[in-house]
């Protein structure tokens, strides 16, 4: 059965502060699906999220921490959060400063859990 990317992404965009969410093939940095506010660039989100997240995961792999389940990057004006599921696929969420990292994190893990099931 085809995974319900759109449903999972829509749920994520309902979290306060979330500007957009995409399903990314991190190997290519290409968005496979997206739910974004007007004006947000899903292709840029996919490419940049894929690259930085994979770089961080390689660091944790080198540290011997085992499979990554969540990665995030915080800036002064927002955050980028991603969770891998199924091979090189991951969901990346972009949020503004009004977002709560804890809530975004839970929503993302929930979404990934639903897709991986």
């Amino acid at each position: 059965m085809k995974p319900n990317f759109e449903g999972a992404l829509e749920q994520l965009t309902r979290v306060r502060g979330v500007r957009g969410a995409v399903v990314v093939d991190a190997q290519d940095g290409i968005a496979l699906a997206g739910a974004l506010r007007d004006g947000e660039d899903g292709d840029a989100l996919a490419a940049l999220a894929g690259a930085v997240m994979m770089r961080l995961v390689r660091g944790s792999d080198a540290a011997g921490l085992g499979p990554a389940r969540l990665v995030y990057l915080r800036g002064d004006d927002g955050l980028l959060c991603a969770a891998p599921f199924g091979g090189t696929l991951l969901i990346a969420v972009l949020a503004d400063r009004s977002a709560n990292l804890g809530l975004v994190r839970l929503a993302l893990l929930d979404a990934v859990g639903g897709l991986a099931a």
Binding site: A26, Q27, D28, G29, D43, A44, A47, L48, G50, A51
Partner: peptide, 9 residues
């Protein structure tokens, strides 16, 4: 060492 997405971006 890079990705299609980054090159296109």
């Amino acid at each position: 060492e890079t990705t299609v997405g980054l090159v296109q971006l």
